[in-house]
Design a protein around this nucleic acid. Structure first.
Length: 282
DNA sequence: AAGGTAACCTGACTGC
DNA sequence: TGCAGTCAGGTTACCT
């Protein structure tokens, strides 16, 4: 479910819900997520306020004085706000956080993740500020944020020198731009008219200008409509995203290309389904 | 160093 | 009805 737009939508909703609230405690299902759950670090945060909520790549960062909780939604994670403190944790509910607002109201968040590819990590401020915050997030470090003004055709063209890998895999690798997953890689390449298997180094500066803009435009449109809704993405309020209706190629194998009407093809690239138009994308 | 592959998990869906 | 097979938004350890 979650690519950058879904993570951004989640971060904004969390900002609405718990900005300035004081952390009161948590419950954890005990089931293994991608990384060991940082119980001890969260325990030390009880009684302290959330300073900010932000997003870096596909991580939501909850900032406290001693550092950040970095939440990754993986393939199937989502956050939901619930009303009742005694809310029974469902089969795939793994974390519940409790906050208190300035007015003394209780705010409860539940992290649900059936496939458990998601993760909760603790980033200590002292260690994080020595290096780059991004470096602690592993692969999310080297690429630029898509809405960073430095992310443009020039950056892409320069980074692509001597890259023999296909453009789609390169886009998704996080080494040039972060947050572009399978759906938005397919959609951006369709928009830019570039074949997903074209070598990154064999794309002109002019086409990279176009691609960088396409990536930004598509991600922004998805954020504006509340996130993609591939199977079950929902905001904190359970409201489903609507972007799925606008996919031009993703999930549309055999359907006519919206531009030239030739059937959309599906191939596997790097173990991921890739949708494209053989007529429009070169 | 770059590039490819398998692995981590569960649920939904398809076809026999 | 049931069971096997396939596929799904992401990352990362480990090969070559």
């Amino acid at each position: 479910m979650p690519e950058l737009p879904e993570v951004e939508v989640t971060a904004r909703a969390l900002r609405q819900a718990i900005s300035g609230c004081v952390f009161q405690g948590f419950r954890y299902s005990g089931k293994r997520l991608r990384h060991a759950f940082p119980r001890a670090a969260l325990g030390r945060l009880i009684g302290t306020p959330v300073l900010s909520i932000s997003r870096r790549a596909k991580y939501v960062l909850l900032e406290f004085e001693p550092g950040w909780i970095a939440v990754h939604l993986g393939m199937s994670g989502s956050m939901e706000q619930v009303r009742c403190r005694d809310h029974a944790l469902g089969l795939h509910d793994h974390v519940m956080l409790e906050f208190e607002s300035v007015k003394g109201e209780s705010r409860l968040l539940v992290f649900n993740d059936p496939r458990r590819f998601g993760s909760w990590q603790w980033l200590d401020r002292r260690r994080a500020e020595k290096s780059d915050l991004g470096a602690l997030l592993g692969g999310a470090s080297s690429g630029l944020e898509p809405f960073d003004s430095r992310f443009n055709g020039q950056w892409m063209a320069e980074s692509a020198r001597s890259r023999r890998v296909g453009i789609k895999q390169w886009l998704m690798s996080g080494s040039v731009v972060v947050g572009v997953g399978n759906i938005y890689a397919c959609e951006s390449l369709f928009e830019a008219g570039i074949h997903p298997l074209r070598k990154a180094s064999a794309i002109s500066r002019a086409r990279y200008d176009y691609l960088a803009n396409a990536v930004r435009r598509i991600l922004q449109a998805a954020i504006d409509s509340g996130g993609s809704t591939i199977q079950n993405f929902a905001g904190l309020d359970g409201e489903a995203g609507r972007y799925g209706q606008k996919h031009c190629v993703y999930g549309r194998e055999g359907e006519p290309c919206p531009r030239c009407s030739r059937p959309i093809r599906r191939v596997i690239i790097g173990q991921r389904s890739t949708f494209f138009c053989h007529g429009c994308q070169r």
